[in-house]
């Protein structure tokens, strides 16, 4: 987030106007897809002046039968729409970071936020813009790093899920320890050699 990016509002507005085609079922979903995510990404990389990934790298964009995978494909398509803004197209130096974002940066978010919500819901729109900017090392114009970080933390669904998972893991661990402590085997320990 070291560099300033575009105005937040300009990007959320662009996101709200995302054409519905970007939300169609991505190809190759089992049963037939309606949009080709790989082609959309390649067109975008060409437009921004970036290096074209090899076949092995492009496999990272692959969409599988699971609903979460289809959602990830849609999110990649929506992100491509967002980053097709002139501000980004004028900065080819961002191309490597754009590729990393599209190929790997949306996986966690895809597990918890639907592509439809990213377009329709104001909070999710803002979150999505901020997540994309963060992956590109940018913050919204007019914001400090602290402000941008705080706001993203407030909105960050993936981070929230991570916290929930950690909490759930911690609770499971605490429960396991409690059960062990209460078990007969735990009580059958040798006494200590002196009182305390």
């Amino acid at each position: 987030m070291s560099d300033e990016g575009p105005q937040l509002e300009a990007l959320t507005h662009r996101l709200a106007e995302c054409p519905p085609e970007f939300l169609l079922a991505p190809d190759p979903v089992v049963g037939g897809g309606e949009i080709d995510v790989t082609a959309i990404v390649c067109d975008h990389l060409r437009a921004i002046g970036g290096r074209m990934p090899g076949a092995a790298e492009l496999a990272l964009l692959g969409v599988h039968a699971a609903p979460a995978s289809a959602n990830r494909g849609r999110l990649i398509a929506v992100a491509t729409w967002l980053l097709h803004d002139e501000w980004f197209l004028a900065r080819p130096a961002l191309a490597p970071a754009v590729w990393t974002l599209l190929s790997q940066g949306l996986d966690d978010l895809a597990a918890v936020v639907s592509a439809q919500d990213v377009v329709r819901d104001p909070d999710r729109r803002e979150e999505f813009v901020r997540v994309c900017l963060k992956h590109l090392g940018l913050r919204p114009r007019g914001e400090t790093v602290v402000q941008a970080t705080d706001r993203l933390n407030t909105l960050d669904s993936a981070e929230r899920l991570k916290v929930v998972r950690q909490t759930r893991d911690a609770e499971a661990r605490a429960r396991a320890i409690r059960e062990k402590m209460a078990a007969d085997a735990a009580r059958a320990a040798a006494a200590r050699y002196a009182p305390e």
Partner: peptide, 19 residues
Amino acid sequence: WSFVPDGHPLDGLITYTTS
């Protein structure tokens, strides 16, 4: 239980009840 470090194996965990 919150004092048992993460990753400490629970096999063989015992409990003392203070007198």
